[in-house]
Simulated assay, not measured.
Amino acid sequence: MLSPDPSRLPEIAMRLVALATLCLLALPLPALAQEDTPRITVTGSGEAAAVPDMATVRLGVTAQDANAGAAMDSASEIAAAILARLDGLEIAPRDRQTSNISLQPVWQNGEDSDGPRITGYEASNELTVRVRDLSRLGDVLVAVQQDGANRLSGLTFGLQEPGPVMEQARRDAVADAMETARVLAEAAGVRLGAVVSISQQGGGYAPQPMMEMARAAPAPVAAGEAVLNARVTMVFALED
Rank of each mutant, 00 (worst) to 15 (best):
R117W: 06
M211W: 03
A173K: 02
T128I: 14
Q201W: 03
N229K: 12
L159I: 07
T62V: 15
A68M: 12
L159F: 06
L25V: 08
F157P: 11
S76R: 15
R171M: 11
S76M: 11
D147Y: 11
Q200H: 08
A79F: 09
V131H: 07
D36W: 03
G46R: 07
E212A: 12
F157C: 11
R151P: 00
P4L: 11
T119P: 08
D176L: 03
A214F: 02
E167W: 02
A18Y: 06
A187G: 09
D114I: 05
M1G: 13
E122D: 03
M166P: 04
A31W: 10
D176S: 15
A70P: 03
T156K: 08
A70W: 05
A63H: 07
A50T: 03
M1S: 12
S74Y: 00
L25Q: 09
S153V: 05
Q108W: 04
Q168G: 01
L137H: 05
A84F: 04
L2V: 10
L192P: 00
G203E: 07
S135C: 01
A185H: 07
L29V: 03
P10V: 08
I198W: 00
Q104A: 14
V17C: 02
A71N: 14
V235S: 00
A50K: 09
S113D: 14
P164D: 06
M178R: 15
E111D: 13
P218W: 05
T37F: 00
E122C: 04
A206G: 03
A55M: 08
P209D: 13
W107G: 04
I40G: 01
I91V: 15
V140D: 07
S135G: 14
Y205A: 12
M1W: 05
A206R: 14
F157E: 11
N67Q: 14
A13Q: 13
S113W: 12
I40R: 01
P105W: 10
Q108T: 12
L22Y: 02
A20W: 01
A33F: 01
L9G: 06
P93Q: 12
T180M: 10
V165I: 15
G88L: 12
R39P: 00
D53W: 04
G163R: 13
G203I: 05
S45I: 05
Q145E: 13
L59P: 01
P52Y: 10
M210W: 06
G148K: 12
Q201M: 08
A70E: 15
E90I: 03
A206P: 02
A71C: 11
L32W: 11
R151M: 11
A66G: 15
Q145S: 09
V57S: 03
L24I: 07
G189S: 06
L83Q: 15
A13M: 11
A177T: 02
T43W: 06
P28F: 07
A181G: 02
A63I: 01
A169D: 10
D53M: 05
